[in-house]
Amino acid sequence: SGDTVLVKFSIADSGIGIPVEKQKAIFDSFTRIKYKERIFEGTGLGLAISKNLIEQQGGKIWVTSKPNEGSTFFFDMVLEIGEETTPETHTQQPSETLIIHPNRIMIAEDNKMNQLVARKLLTKRWPELEIVIANNGQEALDLVDEHFDVILMDLYMPVMDGYAATKAIREHHNPNISTLPILAMTADAQIQEGDKYLKYHLDGFIVKPFDPSVLYEKILAHLNRTHAKL
């Protein structure tokens, strides 16, 4: 009608596909598809919840699929047509705080997947950022004489762990290196209890799995704090 529009969405995959006789059942709660004696992980609730939400808003959801070729899921909804508005323009005032962005960060981490995740998150936020990987604490110590803005330090690594590497960096004869911001990367949420991380001369911590906004915020906070002292 004049005030509404029917919008149709679709998403396709190239997975195992769904047999015709099971295509209705997948929208029921706790239904999972068995394929070659393997039941795929999950609770079997995702599609049931999606169906419920879509139908509550007057839409419908369905699937077309062929085994060994993939599936395409569709849903449609009737949406109101909004009024066109002109965005407000604001004159940006100069910020009183100079925001410094990192140019070079060391990631001291032995897990390849964690290295990849951290690299992707950082370069997504700062595309020009140079990242150097140290696979253990000893490599971090060997590289620390090069210029870095921040070090992201895993605490449990082979050869030399993050605690020992941090202690050695803090004892460095060059004050520009000994005072480098070092943020622990750890899955141990207890590190925050009683400021445990301060005991090991760490400036802060980031709990795995990474929350991108927390990662960016902590890097910028310590980077700007360092530059404010200069």
Rank of each mutant, 00 (worst) to 15 (best):
S1N: 10
G2H: 11
T4S: 13
L6V: 12
K8V: 15
K8S: 14
D13I: 02
S14Q: 14
G17I: 01
G17F: 05
V20Q: 09
I26Y: 09
F30W: 00
R32N: 10
K34A: 12
K36L: 11
K36H: 12
K36Q: 14
E37V: 00
E37C: 02
R38A: 08
F40E: 11
G46R: 11
L47W: 05
L47S: 03
L47T: 04
I49F: 12
I49Y: 11
L53K: 12
I54C: 09
I54K: 08
Q57H: 15
G58Q: 07
G58N: 03
G59M: 09
W62P: 05
W62M: 05
T64C: 07
N68I: 01
N68V: 00
E69F: 13
E69L: 13
S71G: 03
F73L: 14
F73N: 01
F75W: 15
F75E: 09
F75S: 10
D76E: 15
E84G: 06
P87M: 10
P87D: 13
H90Y: 14
H90W: 12
T91G: 01
Q92A: 14
Q93F: 08
S95E: 11
L98A: 12
I99N: 10
I100M: 10
P102E: 07
N103Y: 10
I105H: 10
I107P: 04
A108H: 02
N111Y: 08
N111Q: 09
N111H: 10
N111M: 07
M113N: 11
N114D: 10
N114G: 07
Q115E: 12
A118D: 05
A118L: 14
T123Y: 07
K124P: 00
W126C: 01
P127W: 07
L129V: 03
L129S: 04
V132A: 02
V132R: 06
A134C: 04
N135H: 11
N136C: 13
N136S: 11
Q138F: 07
E139M: 09
A140V: 00
A140Q: 00
F148A: 07
D149S: 04
M160A: 07
Y163Q: 05
A164D: 15
A165I: 06
K167Q: 15
I169H: 00
R170P: 07
E171F: 08
H173I: 11
N174D: 15
N174W: 05
P175G: 09
I177R: 06
I177S: 06
I177N: 03
T179W: 05
T179P: 06
T186H: 00
Q190M: 13
Q190G: 05
Q190S: 15
Q190I: 00
I191M: 01
Q192E: 15
Q192M: 13
E193F: 01
D195N: 15
D195W: 02
D195K: 11
K199M: 07
Y200M: 04
L202E: 05
F205D: 02
F205P: 02
V207T: 15
V207Y: 03
K208I: 00
P209N: 02
P209Y: 00
F210V: 11
D211Q: 12
D211K: 13
V214S: 07
L215N: 06
E217N: 13
I219F: 01
L220T: 00
A221D: 02
H222F: 08
H222T: 03
L223S: 06
L223R: 06
T226A: 12
K229M: 13
L230V: 12
